[in-house]
Design a protein around this nucleic acid. Structure first.
Length: 273
DNA sequence: ACTAACCTGTAA
DNA sequence: TTACAGGTTAGT
């Protein structure tokens, strides 16, 4: 599920409910969903902590607690963090329930790929998956020059490069395909062959697609929901993702479906070069 | 640079 | 029954 716009939407919707609350009890229904820190188990690290702030890095949600503890959550494909103001019965796919000083936070994940990790706050940017992340694509300081620097080192196709979190943090299959369509770039193109003008086009496309995704509160193609359990609406604005063989919104020719970097890739072979 | 693995559900 | 799904990682 969540790529950058979805995680950002979860952050924004969850923040309103849980900032300032205290974690009073933790019920774990599937142990693999959580991970402690060294010899300290998850519950000992986190129980009784006050929730101070919520940040995002790429597709990771960072929840800062007091006493130098943080939670790092990754939803992978189907993970959801849902806030309930009243007691709520866990479902078949509820793996963790945090009982808070007001209401409950449920971690629900059908495919069981998502994880929540307890980490000392000052260590959190050193954990391997976070330390290796590339720049935040919607920050002010992400410029076409920075994108160009990173692309020119890569002799592989553009689709694989956009999915590589060490190049850029936060793009997944949906927003990578949509960015390439908007930039009129063929996903098969080798990243180190882009002209200056093409790099600028890609930079503009990535920023505009991600910002539009956030404005639409994410893409609920299947499972994705925000912290209130609400769907996003960006699925209504997709040009290529999930539209294989449908007519291209620009030229009317059928969209092509291929496999790149192990992922289904949809693009228009007439509009994207 | 691929593929399998981690999982379950849904649709073809 | 088989293929495939918003992701990442470990192993060829």
């Amino acid at each position: 599920m969540p790529e950058l716009p979805e995680v950002e939407t979860i952050r924004r919707t969850l923040k309103k409910h849980i900032c300032g609350l205290t974690i009073e009890q933790i019920c774990i229904f599937w142990m693999n969903a959580v991970c402690g820190w060294q010899e300290i188990n998850f519950v000992d690290a986190v129980n009784g902590r006050r929730i101070e702030s919520l940040e995002r890095r790429g597709k990771y949600l960072l929840i800062t607690l007091d006493e130098n503890w943080s939670l790092i959550a990754h939803m992978r494909m189907t993970g959801k963090l849902i806030y309930y103001p009243e007691n709520q019965e866990p479902t078949k796919h509820t793996h963790v329930v945090f009982k808070l000083s007001k209401g409950e936070l449920h971690f629900v994940d059908t495919r069981k790929f998502g994880r929540i990790q307890a980490v000392p706050t000052k260590e959190r940017l050193n954990i391997r998956s976070l330390a290796c992340l590339g720049p935040e694509p919607i920050e002010e300081d992400f410029t076409p020059e920075i994108l160009g620097e990173r692309l020119k080192k890569k002799k592989i196709n553009l689709k694989a490069v956009l999915l590589d979190q060490s190049v850029l943090a936060g793009l997944g299959n949906i927003y990578a395909d949509e960015s390439l369509f908007l930039a009129h770039l063929n996903p098969n193109r080798l990243a180190n062959t882009l002209s200056h003008e093409e790099i600028e086009r890609l930079h503009r496309a990535i920023q505009s697609v991600l910002k539009a995704g956030i404005a639409a509160q994410g893409t609920s193609f299947r499972d994705y929901r925000d912290a209130n359990g609400e769907k996003g609406s960006f699925q209504e604005s997709l040009h290529v993702y999930g539209r294989a063989f449908e007519p291209c919104s620009q030229c009317g020719q059928p969209l092509k479906k291929i496999r790149l970097a192990g992922r289904t890739t949809v693009y228009c072979e007439y509009c994207q070069h």
